[in-house]
Design a binder for these strands. Structure first.
Lengths: 207, 207
DNA sequence: GACGGGCGTGGACAGTGTACACATCCGCTC
DNA sequence: GAGCGGATGTGTACACTGTCCACGCCCGTC
């Protein structure tokens, strides 16, 4: 309904603020999303933001949402590159692609990555595997979709699925966090990529 | 050398500030460690902190260090409860204990947990398995020690050790982060504990 | 007993998030 | 078409933060 809200005086200030926020997050993570700076970049007074966001946290949440969409897009690109192959093999390749894409995004856009996952997300939203359409997906929805394929093909017993989902998710996310802002920070990026691939392989074996 | 620095006017202000910082971190994570509030609690003027820390980040780093020690203590407690058993079984039980202890600390002290791992750590320090003595260990050093046992007993081939270490670490840390400040935030604690155990089991299987 | 240097104080400044009161302009109703 | 109401943006203000600077104090040392 009325997606044509649009422009009043400024022309969709909300979107402009989110975009400024993304630029800030890109170079400094969630803490760099400074409300006043975002309004400055949008060419507007600080308080104007309060017509569109309850407070700074609300703005950051919106930026986080957009970042999740960007991450999902990166993963979808990786998925699209998976060659077709007979059933199970392909499903496993797709699972691998999700992990690799996730880590690739973390490496290429550390600021956005940290912002995307520094905020509690609506679980129903994040988990739902459908929600297609560009920019609409979330990384966890994509993982769920791939796991659906695996269970459907019988490669993953249904009763083990929940734990498998947690493991896959935890392993990849944990590795990314350790490298980005944890004790492993500063690990050489190529090295990190290589180790990341091994973590993905082992997680798949664990599943 | 000269650990007897101690007291000038205040009686080891540095330590007092770290303790105030820990209290703050406990209830609000790293962002809650605000320098002025710490000095306030220590009954001292804001600038006094600058005689002991270069800046706020330096104070947070010190608090993070202490938090890591507390985490290590929690894990050691868990390790101490592992019953003796024949070689390999015991080693595996110890591995499990490290994972459980790590997650337990994350659940019981979320603020300290996040503070402990929100800061880049000196890798050499964090990794070294020796560094015994109460308050001196780190969670990752303890994990390394247990893995040493596993390789020594032949249960874990030496060449697979590095990746195994990464997987164990990533899975457990990742799960904790997802629950504490990621999309899984708000998951029921008991539920989280149960799922956490399964993640630990699967990670062990993956190793 | 003087004194120099570690330790803490006081005051100040820029920058932040946010509340309150006000100005402006669009779209709707008559 | 006139006019009004409510959404949108502005200005001012306040409390709070991290950090800089100049100063005062008190201890151990010569």
């Amino acid at each position: 309904m009325s997606a044509e809200r649009a422009t009043y005086r400024h022309g969709d200030l909300r979107q402009a603020l989110v975009e400024a926020g993304i630029a800030l997050a890109r170079e400094g993570g969630p803490d760099a999303v400074v409300l006043r700076e975002a309004t400055r970049r949008a060419g507007v007074s600080p308080n104007a933001a309060y017509r569109h966001f309850a407070d700074r946290a609300d703005l950051v949440a919106a930026v986080s949402d957009s970042s999740q969409s960007l991450a999902a897009a990166a993963i979808e690109a990786e998925l699209a590159a998976v060659p077709s192959a007979p059933g199970i093999e392909r499903a496993e390749a797709r699972l691998r692609a999700v992990g690799i894409g996730y880590l690739r995004f973390a490496r290429d856009e550390p600021g956005l990555f940290r912002t995307a996952f520094s905020v509690p997300t609506d679980l129903d939203r994040a988990f739902s595997p459908e929600r297609s359409g560009p920019g609409g997906g979330t990384p966890f929805g994509l993982l769920a979709g791939v796991l659906d394929e695996l269970t459907a093909s019988g490669a993953l017993p249904a009763e083990r699925r929940p734990a498998a989902e947690m493991l896959a998710w935890s392993a990849v996310h944990g590795f990314a966090m350790l490298v980005l802002e944890g004790p492993l920070r500063g690990l050489d990026p190529d090295m990190a990529t290589a180790v990341g691939r091994r973590v993905v392989e082992m997680a798949i074996r664990g599943i």
